[in-house]
Simulated scan of single mutants.
Amino acid sequence: MHWLRSIAATAPSYPAVWLIETQQRPRNLVERSRLRRETAQAVLAQQLGCPDGEVVISHDPAGQPRLAGPHASALHISLATRAGVVAVALARRPVGVDLELVDPDGPLPREALHADELRTLDAIEAVTRPLAFARLWAAKEAYVKALGTGFARPPESFAVSLLAPDRFRIDGVAAEGMLHTIENGGQEILAAAMIVLDEA
C-alpha cells in the first residue's frame, strides 16, 4: 500500500492512493466533479505512461467511477475531494477512498452511527473525538464506495473499528483498511481512508 502526494509520483505496486493538494475550492458538485476528474486523469496518465487524453474515466449506472481507458479491465479506481484535496485510489480489486475534514466544533451524527461506534467515540477524550470521528466516517464512506452501493447501505448498519492511527476494519469483513492524516496548508486537518475488497 502506498500513499503518494504528487501528481508526478508513480506507485511501484497497487493498491496506491494519491492525495493531491490543489489551490482550488470547488463551490458545487459540478466543480468538485471536474476537479476530481482532471486531477485523476493527470495522476493516471503519469502512472500508466500515456497522454492525459487517453485516460477515460466513465461511471457505472450507480455513479461509481470506472477506468475506461488503458488497463480498464485490470484496475479499479475510486475518487474523493475535500477542502481542495483530491484522492485518487487505484487497485487490482474493488477499492474505495474517502476524505473527511476534521471539524472540532461539528456535532456527531449519532443517528448515522452504529451502536459500537458510538460507544467507542463516547469513551474517548473530547479533544480527540473530532479526528477519531473523521477517520471513522472516512472509513465508512470508503467501504460503501468499494462495495459500489454508496449509502444505499445505511451507515448505521455496519461498524468500523479503528485499530490504530493508520488502520481500520469493517466488523465482519475479512479486509483491513488504511488511514492517513494530512494537514492541508497547515490550516485544516483531513482524514483519508482506503480499503480494498475481495472480488467475491
Rank of each mutant, 00 (worst) to 15 (best):
M1N: 01
S6R: 15
I7C: 10
P12Y: 05
L19G: 00
L29M: 09
S33T: 12
R36L: 08
E38C: 08
A40S: 08
A40G: 08
L44W: 09
L44I: 04
L48M: 08
C50M: 09
V56Y: 07
S58G: 14
P61N: 04
P61F: 06
A62I: 04
G63Y: 03
P65T: 03
P65W: 05
A68W: 01
G69P: 00
G69W: 05
P70W: 07
S73V: 06
A74Q: 15
A74S: 15
L79R: 09
V85F: 01
V86N: 06
A87Y: 05
V88D: 03
A89D: 12
V95F: 07
D98N: 08
L101H: 10
P107I: 03
R110T: 12
L113A: 09
A115K: 08
D116W: 08
E117M: 08
L121P: 02
A123V: 13
A123P: 09
I124S: 05
T128N: 14
R129A: 01
L136Y: 11
L136E: 11
W137K: 02
K145M: 06
L147E: 15
T149R: 12
T149S: 15
F151D: 02
R153F: 10
P154M: 13
P155M: 13
F158G: 04
F158D: 06
A159N: 06
P165Y: 11
D166E: 13
L179N: 04
I182K: 04
I189K: 11
L190P: 01
L190E: 06
L190H: 09
E199N: 13
A200D: 14
